[in-house]
Simulated scan of single mutants.
Amino acid sequence: MTAATPTLSQPQNIAEKPPVTRRRRPDSTTILVTGLLVVAALYFLVPVYWVVVAATKTSGDLFATNGFLFAPHFVLWDNLANVLAYGDGIFVRWFLNSILYAGVGAVAATYFAAAGGYALAKYNFRGNSFIFGLILGGVLVPGTATALPLFLFFSQLGIANTYWSVLLPSLVSPFGLFLCRVYAQATVDPALLEAARIDGAGELRIFHSVGLRVLTPALVTVFLFQLVGIWNNYFLPLVMLSDSKLFPITVGLNNWLSQADRLPEFYQLTTGGVLLSVIPLAIAMIVLQRFWRGGLTEGAVK
């Protein structure tokens, strides 16, 4: 018998060196895109910063100091108190009017856009393409072009200089309907609708139970577009309204600014009012942005 020759084993306690990775330098395209995004961010954030700084100054400091630096006299709380108290609280009335116009108008316009877009996307009927073409034409028509004809029409109906004269035009969103139609075609699976019909659900119930849930990201987008558009709308309320108690914030603040040449204290009221007017939009953007990231029924159809 021959003895087995021992074999040498490799040492196990020697740690292997990790591979050396070289840090990749950003290419010119990445640098260019990052620079453009920084410029775009500054374009939107600098005016907001200026409004915050201007709201902390007196009328004298507003013109005597640097516009992007705080003045020695910090009077933000005094300015906001004066804004809320001036004219027996007329700013609060304008603020509530804007909430009424923008809130009711955005909710109703979003619902009608969802219903119309869903119907055009999921039902085949005569004139479907023609109606969609008219809607696309409505997207191209600016709101300022229809303000005067609407005023003449509402004057004949007797609803000019009322809340309805601003609310009714806000209920229509051609762009929202177009967006909902495109989104419904891409996300609302026909299998979901057929399953609901087999279960005995009617068309309205299917739309409210299935269609609206799938369209949630598009609805949030339409709602935000309408909310910002109606909140910042100036020309339509200016044409329709003559009673200052019906003014939204935009028309009311411009009314204050027009008096600043004679009464400089209106500069403080205007800057303080502008600061208060942007708070609801900022809150809406922060709260609703999470709904953009995905649909509620992702993966429902297998």
Rank of each mutant, 00 (worst) to 15 (best):
N82C: 07
A114P: 04
T65M: 07
A121E: 01
L76S: 04
V92R: 09
A71R: 04
T65H: 11
A115L: 14
L69T: 15
F70R: 05
A102K: 01
N66M: 11
D88Y: 09
A106V: 07
A108Y: 11
P72V: 10
A81L: 12
N82T: 13
G87N: 12
L84K: 09
A71P: 03
G87L: 06
A121S: 12
W94R: 02
L120R: 07
Y111R: 03
F70H: 08
N82D: 15
N97H: 07
L69P: 03
V75S: 05
I90T: 11
L76H: 05
F95I: 03
Y111V: 13
F74A: 13
Y118E: 02
L80W: 12
V92I: 15
P72W: 04
P72Q: 10
G89A: 10
T110K: 00
L84V: 15
F74G: 10
T110A: 05
L76D: 04
A119Y: 10
A71G: 10
A85T: 15
G89R: 09
F68P: 02
L69M: 15
G116F: 00
Y101N: 06
N79D: 08
G116Q: 05
A121K: 01
V92H: 04
A114Y: 02
A109M: 04
A85G: 13
A114N: 06
T110I: 09
L69R: 15
R93I: 12
I90F: 03
W77H: 12
H73D: 15
H73F: 07
D78C: 03
A113K: 00
F112I: 11
I90P: 00
H73Y: 09
G116V: 01
I90M: 13
A81D: 15
A85R: 15
V107K: 00
W94T: 04
A64Q: 10
D88K: 11
A121H: 00
F68N: 09
F68W: 14
T110D: 04
Y86W: 12
T65R: 06
F95K: 01
A71L: 07
G116N: 07
T65Y: 11
G117W: 02
G117Q: 06
L100H: 04
F74W: 14
G87Q: 13
A81P: 05
L76A: 04
V107P: 02
V83A: 08
Y111N: 06
P72E: 09
F112H: 04
D78L: 05
D88L: 08
L96F: 14
A85Y: 11
F68R: 08
Y118P: 00
P72S: 09
A113R: 00
S98K: 02
F91N: 01
F95S: 01
W94G: 01
F68L: 15
L80S: 13
N66A: 14
V83C: 09
A102T: 03
F112M: 12
H73Q: 15
F95T: 00
V92D: 04
V75H: 06
L76Y: 06
D78S: 14
H73G: 10
I90Q: 13
A109G: 05
A108P: 00
A115C: 09
A109Q: 00
A102S: 12
Y101T: 05
Y118F: 14
N66Q: 14
A119S: 15
D88T: 10
L69K: 14
L100K: 08
A109L: 03
